[in-house]
Design a protein around this nucleic acid. Structure first.
Lengths: 222, 222
DNA sequence: CAGAATATCGAGCAAAAACTCACATTTTTC
DNA sequence: GAAAAATGTGAGTTTTTGCTCGATATTCTG
């Protein structure tokens, strides 16, 4: 039985020296996670990578899981900040702009350590550590839903929350794979274009730009 | 360094009795994986769950990883069969039908043990076991790309392979989340409808059906 | 039905990994 | 500048877990 272990820090560092130690430990955890994956991320290895003794690790972190939680906390915090800032900026623009902004924001936040994100997302056991991840989703999904709801008239949606869910899951699904498998697509702007088109086509087909040009101008001729 | 260990079965069961043992072991692995996650899926626990001694497990499987590979092999085989059958059936239908069929096929294949799928996908270390998963993707992505290429005239795509990638990643992203988080959406047909709309809107906005009815029939009036 | 082949069992070994603790070192306090 | 508090150390303990092996049981074969 997996008893609920604490995952919060054991002791707060008060001197500058110990704050640096904690910092080194968290960074080393991320580095090991990135390089060797979750399975190989042992406490001893983290200590070594941080240039610190195991004793020091356990001075501040009660167990292995709490190390990963610390990394996750930091990483998701950065991502969230990037996205929420972007979403807030365009509260009252028109649909294409908002969609482009949303896609751009999600791309931007996924530029932050995409490989670490993948390890965190895919290899970390679905336990305490995962709570933070859902908190992130649960924060911006309502933001999108709210915007959709406010513009329901021009959009014709069955349900803003369903639409927000579909949009976010779809974009997340594409972005998180592309970031690792086809990073060049991001640099070329190809992905932003494709995803904008995907969402606009979903929300308002008549506003979606053609993929290259308009090839078959015949529209209503069955 | 993770030396490449063999993950293929150690010995083929020849008597009926031993075939039942192997079957019990594979099923027990899936059950433990499902109930307790990858981390807690120890060989001893699997043996216990299978009602078999550890010795018997190691008679047929060289190591722990091979147990998971066996489960994955079986699961992905089932999924692949479901999808490929469906895709083949509609080689020469029109666009909306094909898209609906593709979405339906992906939904259908994800109905097979969605939670097991998630564990396999997310928690299994990205090693030998993962090869099989990519083989699955690499099999039907070209099928979709080929179809798109054949209909490039009516579709206006920048690149069939990019479009296939985006479509599959998007649908996969939505479906694999919904299956676990919002299973009722699938039963209600809501998801099939939304995803069809998403893909049609992407490929051919002028063919996409409205989300509920047509609310703003004004189409070309800026 | 005897002996060979196949299969099962489970105590226990060895390696690996999580974690502790008694002591050394540095910084702060007064 | 001495006592106290905070921090750092790493050898060593404990726990976990993958896996072996000799003994035992079942099934097949001629």
């Amino acid at each position: 039985m997996a008893t609920n272990r604490r995952v919060t820090p054991r002791k707060r560092p008060s001197q500058g020296r110990s704050r640096a130690t904690v910092e080194a430990i968290v960074q080393a955890t991320a580095r090991v996670l990135l390089k060797d994956g979750y399975e190989a991320c042992t406490t001893n290895r983290v200590a070594e990578a941080a240039g610190v003794s195991i004793g020091s690790v356990y001075q501040y972190f009660p167990n292995k899981e709490s190390l990963v939680v610390a990394v996750m906390e930091r990483h998701l915090g950065q991502m969230q900040e990037a996205l929420v800032r972007r979403l807030g900026e365009m509260a009252d623009a028109d649909l294409p702009t908002v969609v482009r902004g949303m896609v751009g924001g999600m791309l931007e936040m996924h530029r932050i350590q995409p490989k670490l994100h993948r390890v965190l997302l895919e290899q970390v056991p679905r336990i305490g550590a995962m709570k933070r991840l859902h908190e992130l989703n649960d924060q911006y999904e309502p933001m999108v839903a709210a915007w959709l709801e406010a513009h329901q008239g021009e959009l014709d949606l069955p349900s803003p929350s369903v639409a927000a869910y579909v949009m976010i899951a779809a974009v997340e699904g594409v972005v998180s794979r592309v970031m690792v498998e086809k990073p060049s697509w991001v640099e070329l702007g190809l992905l932003e274009q494709q995803l904008t088109r995907l969402l606009l086509g979903y929300l308002a087909p008549h506003l979606a730009p053609p993929l290259k040009q308009a090839p078959t101008p015949a529209r209503a001729a069955p």
